[in-house]
Write a protein that binds this DNA or RNA. Structure first.
Length: 492
RNA sequence: GCUCCGGUGGUGUAGUCCGGCCAAUCAUUUCGGCCUUUCGAGCCGAAGACUCGGGUUCGAAUCCCGGCCGGAGCACCA
């Protein structure tokens, strides 16, 4: 009588309903541009469930609207998916499968469940809204077949193929939806070979069936589409997959829409699809956000129907837990001020060594040559304690003379050497870089503004893609290496 | 307007199906404190939620009705 025991949810995604053995799932993007974080939800959810239950993961590119197919997107989607660790077993492109859709369309006509409609769209809508069938609905199959076979000669807009549903369906949107229409537009892959294109609801349902998809995970904006597609399954006598609809993912401060991003790029407001202000996968990756952080995020949000608002703080928190252990530490000086330390005892000069990571000394050290000439960041110089004392980490304590000017090279005086002295003096403990061999570095911030400064010499061995922690500044990813290093800032 | 779907701390989640073990989980966030030669990490502590109103019931976050708020769809886009 009782609940079958509270099952301890192993933490993470909830179980998928109605699983019988292995599952077949698919991610089916429209190739309109690179993937954004909203796509990541669909991709990661599908990929995680396949990992859990075993089975097959399908990538299907849905390019049945030549007007919305971006030739570059086919490749960028694959790149983004690889970064997302979405390892698909099979890949299909719908524009390769046109003949299949034609075949099923014809079969549906023969079953008497589809008809060629030559009504004007506005006329049909009027009838439909009143639950009235249009005259074409009752045409004999032969007539429909004839019109179907001559469909290709029709002008765009003159005719469509409709699937019969229920003309009295309480949701007018469901009533006799369009399965095929004419589009006069070069297709990036098939050129002008075809003019008759399936509508998404038709090709999706046919493909999901043919490919043996067991569970369809899609956004709740497809709720009505799922309902429409069920009619097709019914007409053909196919088994209906399990439909799961998840809510919208809103990202604070980010315009998610691909079209907005595209406009912005074309107008030069963004530097490209990986501009740090965008919510694309590649922009996020460029900033040093790790795949694992997104995966954590998506599995935590799960497939529930209510909308979720994601904050950058949340992503940063997840990412930091990955980066904290992974990232080596370096000294970076933003807004540099050159400081000359007077009266420096000779034996304080030399190579100063510091762990690459304070919690993992076994990773080795970096070396900072110290000769009394350094760069410090302006903020530290300006706020150098009441007594004007600063401790340069692992080096010496210095004091600025009162009343020294805030411009150009600054003179400081050697004060003492030990940490205890610094503490006793209430000194700030700051990072520094040698004035001579440091490397010029620019950090591109999340708002695309650039902070320039110097990074310590040891950074010369960094490679593109490395993510490091710039001590007291934040985590950042190496975007370009060389004799001037460019970073993209991730977060504190 | 019509159709449908949601609503648990700032955010994200567990619990809702099968009412009691929920004076509500976990994470993050925020704020204290400790620690630390990073403004990072770690440790300790604290703050903070069942949208509202009725109803059913001994008992409601959980069931029913209504309101409010939010979202989606209403295309020859996907």
């Amino acid at each position: 009588m009782k609940k079958p025991e509270k099952k301890e949810e192993p933490k993470g995604l909830p179980d998928l309903p109605d699983v019988e053995g292995k599952v077949t799932l698919r991610f089916a993007p429209n190739p309109s541009g690179p993937l954004h974080i909203g796509h990541a939800r669909a991709a990661i959810l599908n990929s995680e469930y396949v990992k859990r239950y075993g089975g097959k993961l399908i990538l299907r590119i849905e390019d049945t609207d030549p007007r919305r197919a971006d030739p570059d997107a086919y490749q960028s989607i694959e790149e983004d998916l690889k970064w997302l660790d979405f390892n698909w077993d099979e890949e299909y492109v719908q524009s390769d499968r046109m003949e299949i859709y034609y075949k099923y369309a014809e079969e549906l006509i023969k079953l008497g469940q589809a008809y060629m409609c030559t009504c004007r769209g506005s006329d049909f809508k009027k009838l439909k809204d009143e639950s009235r069938a249009c005259p074409c609905r009752d045409q004999p199959v032969d007539k429909n077949l004839e019109l179907w076979r001559n469909f290709n000669k029709a002008e765009e807009g003159d005719a469509v193929l409709r699937v019969k549903t229920d003309i009295n369906h309480k949701n007018p949107a469901i009533r006799d939806w369009v399965a095929m229409r004419i589009v006069d537009e070069e297709h990036p892959r098939t050129g002008s070979k075809y003019r008759v294109y399936p509508m998404m609801n038709f090709s999706v349902a046919v493909d999901d069936h043919l490919m043996g998809v067991t569970h369809v995970l899609r956004g709740k904006d497809h709720l009505a589409n799922s309902e429409k597609q069920k009619y097709l399954y019914k007409h053909f006598g196919w088994k209906v997959p399990v439909f799961i609809h998840y809510g919208r993912l809103k990202m604070e401060d980010v315009a998610l829409s691909t079209s907005k991003a595209r406009t912005g790029i074309e107008e030069g407001r963004y530097t490209g699809w990986d501009d740090p202000r965008l919510g694309t996968i590649r922009a996020i990756a460029r900033r040093g956000i790790k795949q694992g952080a997104l995966q954590e995020l998506i599995t935590e949000i799960g497939p529930k129907m209510s909308d979720a608002t994601v904050s950058w703080k949340k992503i940063y928190g997840l990412n930091r837990s990955i980066l904290e252990d992974a990232s080596d530490r370096y000294f970076f000086i933003a807004k540099p001020v050159k400081v000359q330390i007077a009266n420096l005892p000779e034996d304080e000069e030399g190579i100063i060594e510091r762990h690459l990571h304070p919690n993992f000394p076994e990773r080795g050290n970096r070396e900072l040559p110290f000769n009394g000439k350094v760069y410090l960041t302006m903020d530290d110089v300006e706020r150098a304690g009441k007594k004007g004392i600063l401790r340069l980490m692992d080096a010496v304590n210095i004091r600025f003379k009162e009343g020294s000017c805030g411009c150009g090279e600054r003179i400081a005086v050697y004060q003492s050497s030990t940490l205890e002295d610094a503490r006793a003096a209430g000194a700030r403990i700051v990072q520094w870089v040698p004035a001579l061999k440091s490397i010029v570095a620019d950090v591109v911030m999340p708002d695309a503004k650039i902070v320039s400064g110097f990074i310590e010499p040891a950074a010369s061995k960094l490679e593109v893609g490395d993510v490091v922690q710039l001590e007291r500044f934040g985590f950042a990813r190496v975007d370009s290496a060389g004799n001037r290093i460019r970073f993209y800032f991730a977060h504190k």
